[in-house]
C-alpha cells in the first residue's frame, strides 16, 4: 500500500491568467450591481406598491375576453409563421455556415457573420425596423421573429451539423456522392434530433417574444396589454397576463411532449 502513488489534487490549480480572469469577472459582477443600482432596501420599499397593483388586478376582468382571445391567436400565429419561415431559411444558411460542409472559407465566414448579426440585434429592434418597412401589424412581427429565429437556429443547426459523426459522410463520399448528397443523406438525418429540438425551443422563444413585439406595434397581444396598463385597467391586464401565461405554458408543454415523441 505504501508504494501506491498519492491521489492527484482534488482541484486543478488555475494558471495565473485564469486566476486573473476569474478575479476580473468577479469584480465586474460586483461593479455591475452597483452600476445598475441594485438595492435590497429599494426592493423592500417597493413591495407595498406591488401588493396594491396585484390587489387591483384581481379579480380579472373578462369583459373583453373575445378580443383578448383573438389577439392571443394572432400572437401565436405570428410565432408559428415566423418560426416556420426562420427554420426553413436556417437550413441552407446553416449548411453554408458549417465549416465542414461550406463550399469555401469566405462563404463560411460571410454566412457566419450574417447569422451573428441577426442574432445580436434584439428582436424588438428588428420589429421596429420592419414596422417602418412593412407597416404596423402582425406581418412586421412575423418578419422580426423570422430573423431572430435565423440568428438562433442558424447557429445551432450549423453546430449540430459539424458535430455529426464523420464515418457515414466518409462512406458516402467514398462511393461517389456529391457534397449536397452527403449533407442530405448523412448529415441531416443524424442532426435531425438536434434540429427538431432547436426548432421547438425556437418556437417557445418566439411565443414569448411575440407578446412583447406588440408593444412597438408589430401585432399580437402586446398592444392590448400596453393599452390596458396605460388605461389603468388592471383587471383586463391581469386577464391578458393570465392568457399569455397559459399560451406559453401550453406551447412549452406541447414542445416538450413532441421532443419526447420525436427524439
Amino acid at each position: 500500500m505504501a508504494d501506491v502513488a498519492p491521489a492527484p489534487a482534488r482541484f486543478e490549480r488555475p494558471s495565473l491568467l485564469t486566476f486573473v480572469m476569474m478575479v476580473a469577472v468577479g469584480a465586474f459582477v460586483i461593479v455591475s450591481f452597483d452600476g445598475v443600482g441594485v438595492s435590497l432596501s429599494k426592493a423592500w420599499d417597493g413591495l407595498p406598491a406591488m401588493g396594491r397593483l396585484v390587489e387591483r388586478m384581481f379579480p380579472p376582468d373578462f369583459s373583453r375576453i373575445a378580443s383578448v382571445g383573438g389577439a392571443l391567436l394572432e400572437t401565436f400565429q405570428m410565432a408559428v409563421a415566423g418560426t416556420a419561415l426562420g427554420v426553413l431559411a436556417s437550413i441552407p444558411l446553416a449548411i453554408l455556415a458549417s465549416r465542414r460542409h461550406s463550399p469555401a472559407t469566405p462563404v463560411y465566414l460571410a454566412v457566419r457573420a450574417l447569422i451573428s448579426f441577426f442574432r445580436t440585434v434584439p428582436d424588438l429592434v428588428w420589429a421596429l425596423i420592419f414596422v417602418v418597412a412593412v407597416g404596423l401589424g402582425p406581418f412586421a412581427g412575423t418578419l422580426a421573429i423570422m430573423i431572430d429565429t435565423i440568428g438562433f437556429c442558424g447557429r445551432f443547426f450549423a453546430e449540430a451539423m459539424e458535430e455529426v459523426e464523420e464515418g457515414p459522410q466518409e462512406a458516402l463520399s467514398g462511393l461517389g456522392a456529391g457534397r449536397l448528397a452527403v449533407v442530405f443523406c448523412a448529415v441531416m438525418p443524424a442532426a435531425l434530433p438536434s434540429l427538431v429540438a432547436t426548432s421547438l425551443f425556437s418556437l417557445e422563444k418566439a411565443t414569448r417574444s411575440s407578446v412583447v413585439l406588440g408593444l412597438v406595434g408589430a401585432g399580437g397581444i402586446g398592444i392590448e396589454l400596453k393599452v390596458a396598463m396605460e388605461m389603468f385597467s388592471y383587471g383586463q391586464a391581469c386577464t391578458i397576463i393570465l392568457a399569455v401565461f397559459l399560451l406559453v405554458l401550453a406551447v412549452e408543454q406541447a414542445s416538450a411532449w413532441l421532443r419526447r415523441r420525436i427524439l
Binding site: E165, G167, P168, E170, A171, C185, A186, P189, A190, L192
Partner: peptide, 9 residues
C-alpha cells in the same frame, strides 16, 4: 469500413 458507417437513423 470497419465500423460499417451506415447512416444511423
Amino acid at each position: 469500413f470497419q465500423k460499417h458507417n451506415l447512416v444511423p437513423r
